[in-house]
Amino acid sequence: MHEMSLCESIITVLEAEAARQSFSRVKHIWVEVGAFSGAEPESMKFCFEAVSRGTLAEKAVFEIITAPGQACCFACGDTVILNERFDPCPRCGSHQLQVTGGEDLRIRELEVD
């Protein structure tokens, strides 16, 4: 359940941004959750609702943008999309892969008052 502390970190970032960019309420938040970020999108939604109560983001619409897992294959040289870290290269079947994307957890955009 580290999604709870991830959501607490989101609130901390929002509070700092509210002071910096002069807004008092967050109405909508778009968060990118990479397939290999270690966070579960549904759990993030559930936790955000709980930790945002009484904060500037209470009742904000929490929207998740999922980012696929991406890797570079050393065997065939292609950049490929992976569903799981341990999947083989979908083109050549090799496991000589270096993950290059899908590990991010980022707040992308906010709609604020």
Partner: peptide
């Protein structure tokens, strides 16, 4: 309301 782009890592 306005849209604010922040592109911040949650961690």
């Amino acid at each position: 309301s306005r849209i604010v782009q922040i592109e911040q890592d949650i961690l």
